[in-house]
Design a protein around this nucleic acid. Sequence first.
DNA 1: GTGTTATATATAGCTTGCTAATCATATTGG
DNA 2: CCAATATGATTAGCAAGCTATATATAACAC
Lengths: 141, 141
Amino acid sequence: MEEKVDCDIRELLDKISSRMRRDYSESLRELDLYVGQDNLLHRLWSGDGVTQMQLCEHLNCEPPTVTNMVKSLEQNGFIYRKRDQKDARVMRIYLTEEGKELEKPIEAKWRKQQEKLLNSILPEERMLLRRIMKQMESNLF
Amino acid sequence: MEEKVDCDIRELLDKISSRMRRDYSESLRELDLYVGQDNLLHRLWSGDGVTQMQLCEHLNCEPPTVTNMVKSLEQNGFIYRKRDQKDARVMRIYLTEEGKELEKPIEAKWRKQQEKLLNSILPEERMLLRRIMKQMESNLF
DNA sequence: GTGTTATATATAGCTTGCTAATCATATTGG
DNA sequence: CCAATATGATTAGCAAGCTATATATAACAC
């Protein structure tokens, strides 16, 4: 019985996240972005000139993934790359004007998505949910 | 303030699910499977001879995704395809012996993963979490 | 019965992710 | 100073996911 509840949680998490990703992905296409690229841009909005390794850490993904995302975002004109002056191995990533302009529309989409997700869930429940999820996060890392 | 809490929830969900997927993916490689394929097999364990459209619905994904997954699983010898007798458009998917044998090891991995995820979260909290997530699920669909 | 429309699957081409292997540059040890 | 090692990024190749498009078959309309 309790086993079943736990199992539902794993499945539910899976369903919710894949559905969210799908919805969100569709919504981002309006801005000529793919899902995940918004997170990379998010990191840049709080400070340009970051290395790809730093993006790896922030996105919690592997270097080739960042290489691909950066390539795609550069081709679409949202960012540009510049080789570091002191260390020629390092690429530093900067926002273009177009990239900077995405901050507000993306934030609006985030807000919209979280409103949809949390609809009719009470503030106390949200607090509790957040606490439990924090615990789950630390369990995984 | 409350805005911030909500935002954390969206981000947390994203982090948790991507981390879970990553861990799980790595774990499945021991069985020569890729993440997502276990869900397809899961549908077959509760009844063979399903069409690809039915798999689409169960996995909540698009037809080309199922085509690719089925191709990969067939090449690895876990399933086989047979054209329907009455409707020549339809492909029916069946488990091979190898595919059937995966049920227990995969269930073990599920259990292990959910134990890791829910570590130190109390039964009452789990019940509540499940209820809130059910609400979130219905918000999205 | 033939033409049109609907349905099931497949193909092409894209991005996100991964791993394994490669390349270029830095750093460190002798 | 030069060899060995470490580090940052890239490339190749794979699977999950998508969209748009194509193909084959079925069902429906006239």
